[in-house]
Amino acid sequence: MANIRLRADRYGIDWKNLLTLAVAVGAAVLWIARAPASDEALFPMPVGKTYLNECGSCHTAYAPGHLPARSWRRMMAELSDHFGEDASLDQPAHLSILKDLETLAADNPAANQRMRRIAAGVPAGATPQRITETAYFRHLHDEVPKHFWRRKSIGNPANCAACHPRANEGRYGEREIRIPAQ
């Protein structure tokens, strides 16, 4: 007991902290228990609305786990000419989004198996700016007929949400795919 108290003091843990921790761990366990099969296409998304509002206004809010951190760093450094558009941000939003992208990138240390496969598919010297040009994306979608991509409500392979309705939540699972008929 004395021992525990000593260590708790050293780490500055008080009961309030412990309680918060317990609730957090409980929530995590619940979440894991509810999560579907381990290889379901789930990608972690930034917390809060900033990423969705700023990077999900012109297109799907892409899950950061689709590109390595170096790709995101380069993209964030060139936002004033982002595929021809001005996607520049004020500094607080810029910093917080860059941090989220780096933390959740395909090659982050906590990446899941699928993200690690994506990262492994990008050649070491490359900093791809398009998810749709990565080997992984092409491989997954090589059975989607070319003319599908040009359907009015899709328009573009980068319009993930047209076929993956919950893409903005990082959910790309096969069971949830809905390809619009026109």
């Binding site: 012109c58 297109h59 799907t60 595929f83 021809g84 558009e85 409500s153 899709i154 328009g155 573009n156 980068a158 319009n159 949400a161 047209a162």
Partner: peptide, 9 residues
């Protein structure tokens, strides 16, 4: 609406 380049609604 629909974005001309990205196709997003």
């Amino acid at each position: 609406g629909q974005h001309v380049k990205t196709g997003k609604v």
